[in-house]
Amino acid sequence: MNRKETVNELQLLVYELDVESAMTKEVVTVSPDLAMDKLPKILKSNRITGVPVTEDGRLVGIISLEDYVRWAADDGKPSCVGDVMTRKVHTIYSDEPLVSAVSRLERFACGRLPVLDRTTDTLAGIVTKGDVIESMLGNLEIDYREEGLRTYRTSRFFEDIVSDSTELSFAYEIRGESISEGGEVASSLKKTLRRLGMHPDVVRRAAITVYEAEMNVIIYAKAGRVRVSIDQHHISMVVEDEGPGIPDLEQAMAPGFSTAPESVRELGFGAGMGLPNIKQCAESFEIESVVGEGTTLRVSFHMEEACA
């Protein structure tokens, strides 16, 4: 596999696939007549931050946690969703190519787009960035299987490239506070490293490291990114965030020390094991942090076994 080829394949996919193939079809909706004080429970039990408002299947608006907070701050007089909701909603038709969804999500900086059926003009689903990525990865995987491609052994892969030094790199963005997406980067990277034919032990340790680092970014920072580079002998990883920074690194490294909120602990993380776990998995470990600016973590893994 060649990186350029993969990019081309991905580019083709965003044009070939339609929104319908990626969207979530079972959508939670509310009626405009719903009393505002009933809204938090619906959002909370579905773990969503916004919900489309429909009347006879027709989309009439969208109501988000932000709208709720604004309403509550403004006296919270008894009202229904219809009075408070945002009426102007960015939408997309189910038969449009995925690339339109990607650009619209980007342009309007929204987390989700309600999807409409073009013939009936009713709500058909909802699409998020996560849906797009999942659908594209799923389709890439099907392609690989159909073509009967075997995973390369990493050593062979590098031997096949004629250059003085070769380095492959992958980058992943992490959105802070996107708790439900926690683990997506780890899952994607694991698939990629496996596909490159790396030794399962190295793959596992790299995936665990990214999972913990990813959760840290999600818990504490607004945004972050993971850069992974691979040469013939090492996997190096840099995880950067624009978070609050760590005032006392020694304390943060102590197993069990944590400042994570309860909502994260409910998901099985935030118990102060993240950094110690990462240190245990990686062969080299460096962390730099500036309070108010962010944290940078650098780790690496040797692939001697994988290349044997």
Binding site: Y211, G268, A271, M273
Partner: peptide, 8 residues
Amino acid sequence: DLMSNVLA
């Protein structure tokens, strides 16, 4: 119940 323990 602690996923970090499972990872560790």
